[in-house]
């Protein structure tokens, strides 16, 4: 008997694209949920001048730190759901049992997460800078730093989310696991802005952020993939 014609195994790009497209489609269908971290980000930052008073000198001092902390917490809030939804509805089993390499699928999910959370936060940050009286020199380092920093947050959040995927009461453990790793990003990110505002160059901290992002990009997908396999197994 002639073997029935077998469908071809989809290529790496097709696998990456299919999952990225799926997650973007899901985010669009559930936009209320996806917008939550952004609303949190904007609201808290809008409340700061009301709470501490509107003196520009004080706000200027607070601005870089406030925007960065809100970006960090906003991404952390969303990291929780990164793999857990797939775990609950069984889709994670498809990812783990796919002939596609798991790190590639993790990377697709991280890309979607960054496009839905990190990128909008980055694009919103100049508006928040304005509200917090950030001097003009600070805007470019803020944008560049956040673009890199939120990518690192998404990548590390994926590792944390993968490690805690099968646990109950996830968010506490996830925060404890991931927050210490977020701290260097926060320090370099804020110092890029404060140095630029003080009249110095921001190249040093931004270069370090870039290095951290490159390292996270090279390591995190593999770490998250290994953690997901272990999470499913047992």
């Amino acid at each position: 008997m002639a073997a029935p014609q077998l469908p071809e195994l989809p290529g790496l790009a097709a696998g990456y694209g299919a999952l990225l497209r799926r997650d973007l489609q899901l985010a669009w269908r559930q936009r209320g949920q996806a917008v939550n971290p952004l609303i949190f980000f904007v609201m808290v930052t809008a409340l700061v001048p009301l709470a501490v008073g509107p003196e520009p000198a004080l706000l200027t001092r607070l601005a870089p730190g406030m925007v960065w902390i809100m970006a960090l917490l906003g991404t952390l809030l969303a990291a929780d759901a990164l793999f857990h939804e797939d775990f609950v509805d069984g889709a994670l089993e498809h990812l783990v049992l796919s002939p596609q390499p798991l790190w590639l699928l993790v990377l697709a999910k991280v890309t979607a997460h960054w496009l839905v959370i990190g990128l909008p936060i980055t694009l919103l940050s100049p508006l928040l800078g304005l509200m917090l009286a950030l001097p003009d020199a600070g805007f470019v380092p803020l944008l560049a730093g956040l673009a890199l920093g939120t990518l690192v947050f998404s990548l590390l959040g994926a590792v944390g989310g993968a490690l805690t995927v099968a646990l109950g009461g996830r968010s506490v453990l996830l925060s404890l696991l991931v927050l210490p790793l977020y701290v260097p990003v926060l320090i370099f990110g804020t110092s890029a802005v404060t140095q630029a505002v003080a009249g110095g160059g921001s190249g040093g901290p931004l270069a370090l952020l870039g290095a951290i992002a490159a390292l996270a990009l090279a390591v995190a997908p593999f770490a998250a993939a290994a953690a997901l396999r272990a999470g499913i197994d047992g």
Partner: peptide, 11 residues
């Protein structure tokens, strides 16, 4: 459709 990116599938 998304499963078709992960597994061989006759779309």
């Amino acid at each position: 459709r998304w499963l078709g990116g992960l597994f061989p599938l006759h779309r």
